[in-house]
Structures are given as C-alpha cells and as structure tokens.
Write a protein that binds this DNA or RNA. Sequence first.
RNA 1: GGCGGGAUAGCUCAGUUGGUAGAGCAGAGGCCUGAAAAGCCUUGUGUCCCCAGUUCAAGUCUGGGUCUUGCCA
Length: 304
Amino acid sequence: MKPVIIIQGPTAVGKSSLALEIAQKFKLEIISADSRQVYKYMDLATAKPTKKEQDLVKHHLIDIITPDQAYNAGRFAREASELVDHTQLEFPIICGGTGFYISAFLEGLCKIPDIEDNVRESLVKDWNNLGNESMYQLLVDIDPLVAQKVSDKDKQRIIRGLEVFYSTNKKLSDYWAEQGMLETRKILNILILDEREEIYSRINKRYDEMVKSGLLDEIRELLRMGYDSESPGLSAVGYKELLPFIIQDAKLKDCIELAKQHSRNYAKRQLTWYKRNYFNLVFFRKSINYNTIDTYIKHFIENY
RNA sequence: GGCGGGAUAGCUCAGUUGGUAGAGCAGAGGCCUGAAAAGCCUUGUGUCCCCAGUUCAAGUCUGGGUCUUGCCA
C-alpha cells in the first residue's frame, strides 16, 4: 500500500487551491474525492478545477461519468485504490470534501457485491406504496441487528438493509460481522478549517459568483441534453435549487438563497464528520503555515 | 376615499365551541459501513401589534387605534 497525502475540509475553505499549490511545488497529481466533481458537464457549482488548473496539475476521478449515472463510496474506494496502488503515481494528493469516500478508501467497506438497479428501484416503489412503518418492520424481521441501528424513518438505510438481503440472500449485519481490518496505509492527513461565520460568508459569496459566471446556462444545457431532476447528478446542492426557477416560475432570488442555505447545512455536516477523524496537521484558513506543510511533506516523501 | 383580509418563535404560517401557545424551515449540537452535496436524530419562554372593555379566565369575544395587504373607486 502506497502512502498518500490527504487534504480535507468543509466546502469553500480553499482545499483545492492548497492542493494545487502543493502539487505544483512537489510535482504531484491530485485525486479528487468529491461526489459531484465526478460528473461531466457539471463544472460551476461543483467548484471543479478549471481547465487551466487541470492543465497545470493532472487531476483524477473528475469527469468520469454522466449526470444520469450514480456513483458511490464503494466505487470511489475501488477506483482510488486502483490509482494509488496500481499506477505509476507517486505520493498522490487526495483532496476533497466527501469525507465518507476518503474513509471508505482508507478503512475499506465490507465486501458486498454490487446490487442490481432493479432491486433498489422496486424497494423504493414499495416504500412509496407501503410507507416507512411496514418497510421498517420488514427490516426488523429480516435483519434485526441492522434495524436496531437505523431510525424507522431513515429511508436510505432501511432500503439498503433490505436490498442487500434480497439481492445477495445474506444479511447486511453478516457482512459487517465478517469484515476484517484493512492494512493501515501511511497517510499525511491535513485538515483545513475556518470560523463558522467565515465559511458561511465565503459560501454565499462564491455562489453569487457561480451564478454570475453562467450557472443558469450550464443547467439549461444539462436539461437540453436530456438530464432532469431525477438524474443523480442533479441532486447536487447548487443545481437542484435552481430548477424551480428554470422549469417553473419560482423567484430566482429565493432559489439562490435556498442553494446557499443548503451549502451551509452541508458545510456544517462536514465539520461534524471531521471530528471523528485523526489529522496530522490542522490549519485555519487564514493561518496556513506553508513552511510547516512543506517540511511535513518533504519528510513524508523522503521517509516512504 | 369605500369594502374586505392579515398582524402569533429569526422566516412562513397553525391555533378547533374563551382555560396564558405549536408545526415546517432556519440556527445549534449529534449520527453516519456502497444515494454522503444524501439520509437521519436531539433541541422551541415567544411584549400572541397597542389601549380599553366583557369574563373567574382573552391569541381566541367587543370597542377604539396603529401598521400591512388585496379589491373597488
């Protein structure tokens, strides 16, 4: 297992630019750990690195699927491991805000085969017809251990528990029990933080800039290509909120406010997530010490 | 000017026949084993616009005022 440098932080703290700087200085490549930058044609509101930036530094796991396709943590873990361990890449920087993807990559997920789309689809249909109570009861009957850990209103996890059983004929809790420890990878894990107020105001400002630089046209183009509110990619914050303005007659100002609000909610969830992880280096945005980072990276690279 | 709606938590609003208030969203905190920019959990003392009156008791009824909004002129 090759060592990796990881840069994480809530949305809009400036992870990408730090990663870009480090990558250039040490001639490294970047693997994006971002559940929305994987989508082609969605550039602006995903804050995807620009063409120029991608010319300066090679980025991976960006623009790999179309908005009608779904992506998930398992696929990320697999594809990131493939890149890190089975290519010529040396000391790649994994940079992104999807903390669960990075955990999946580092710690591994239990080995569950891919679930066919139609299994989940029919369960979602059942959920809509029967309601959460009977679906939860079904999970209690099938896999009480999982049911115990899940709220009776948690649609995603109830369906997950059921789809694993129906698709593989084996309980999700059995997969959990079988899961072994993954070999620990050497990492230099860096976290960038900021004051809550500061993060929120940067989110607000950045979204206004995205709209100004043509976000509405980008979304109209996506619709023209045949993607719609049902497309997995378009569930992204910053996109879904503008659809009521483009398709119906919602006020643009209200849609923009909602998009900003959801981004702030997202940033808050990210901050909670990071509390569970260990980081080698933690910096506040305004006081990033580049000398310290350089020293750590040099040391890290030289010792592995 | 005439007629009618409104005025209740930061915002949008519920409040049944009078018994001193409650939802959603926001905010705050948390959870997270293939949807994670997702999903879920916990958390609600606020001059119920103001002043009088009726009543044991008024957000709720009566009168007056203030502000707001719609329709007609």
